[in-house]
């Protein structure tokens, strides 16, 4: 028995129980029930979002709070779209350049901090890494004065610059960790052949970096898209990203129009959710490197 177990352990599907003990069967049922219960719990806000967004004004009573719409209408959606569409456009114009520039900078930094090292590379890395953890509140006032002082245009251009700068630590970290997994020999071979740093980077390292580029692009895309702090300090309702516009839509009037703001919340989350659904594996890759440091 132990022998077969050991053999099983080395194959792809190591843990499959052969004979099902009735005690396990009961335990398993309970386990699935528990898992399903939590599934429902997690999805409650989704139900509310969807159902409320399709409700007409006739359904806006407390008694029908959790009921399905008596009539499915699209008014909320068209209102939300009219209000948010310009801001969604601005968010796209902000996150696309911001994430591409961040990824390029991070890749260059990661390369020289791991595979083309110089004296003091570790110190430089730690110095950069600390920037990842600072609460931005601790730089916001002088940053505001600096941005106004230089005369940067409020809105998208400023936000791109800020997302790139404050994205340097995390993108550097992700690329550095990834490049450390590339065998030294491959880079050394380039060195021996007399290839310079840029050629080694361009022809050996860069082609291997596609997966971490995807991870970094997704990470920066998501965090810039979801950012609210920089948006509220450095842009206005007229030139700001979608988080700001959504918050104004939801908190603007005294009598909140929940239907429209819920439709708006779905619209505003759609891009990041689509990325999550299509590229979930890479999304999780970013999460992991964001926490497990080394």
């Amino acid at each position: 028995m132990a022998v077969t177990d050991a053999r099983e352990a080395t194959t792809a599907a190591p843990r499959r129980r052969r004979e099902i003990d009735p005690r396990y069967a009961l335990g398993r049922t309970v386990k699935y029930l528990v898992l399903f219960f939590f599934l429902v719990l997690v999805l409650i806000p989704v139900y509310v979002l969807l159902v409320t967004s399709f409700k007409g004004s006739g359904d806006a009573t407390a008694a029908r709070a959790w009921a399905l719409p008596s009539e499915w209408v699209l008014d909320n959606w068209s209102e939300a779209w009219t209000t948010l569409a310009p801001a969604i456009g601005r968010s796209l114009m902000m996150v696309v350049p911001a994430s591409i520039i961040s990824a390029i900078l991070g890749s260059m930094n990661g390369f020289v901090l791991s595979r083309w090292r110089f004296k003091g590379a570790d110190v430089v890395f730690t110095v950069i890494l600390f920037g990842m953890f600072i609460p931005y509140q601790a730089v916001m006032i002088p940053l505001l004065q600096l941005v106004l002082g230089i005369g940067l245009p409020s809105g998208v251009p400023t936000l791109i610059i800020l997302h790139v700068i404050y994205g340097i630590p995390i993108t550097t970290l992700i690329f550095r960790n990834y490049y450390q997994s590339i065998p030294t020999e491959m880079v050394e071979a380039g060195r021996v052949d007399g290839a310079g740093m840029l050629r080694t980077y361009w022809s050996i390292v860069l082609p291997l970096s596609i997966p971490s580029f995807v991870v970094v692009l997704i990470w920066q895309f998501t965090s810039a898209w979801n950012d609210f702090l920089f948006a509220v300090f450095f842009s206005s309702a007229q030139n700001g990203p979608v988080t700001l516009a959504l918050n104004n839509l939801a908190n603007g009037s005294i009598l909140a129009n929940y239907g429209a703001s819920m439709a708006g919340a779905i619209l505003a989350s759609a891009p990041t959710l689509i990325v999550y659904i299509l590229l979930g594996k890479y999304f999780i890759g970013g999460l992991m490197s964001g926490s497990v440091k080394g």
């Binding site: 599934l39 806000p45 509310v48 979801n226 609210f228 988080t243 708006g264 959710l273 999460l287």
Partner: peptide, 23 residues
């Protein structure tokens, strides 16, 4: 199970705030 437990992470606090304010 995994994807659904994890998906709220992809949503911004502002967007989830909209529904949670109602809840």
């Amino acid at each position: 199970f995994r994807s659904i437990y994890l998906f709220p992470m992809a949503v911004s606090f502002i967007a989830s705030g909209v529904v949670w304010r109602w809840l």
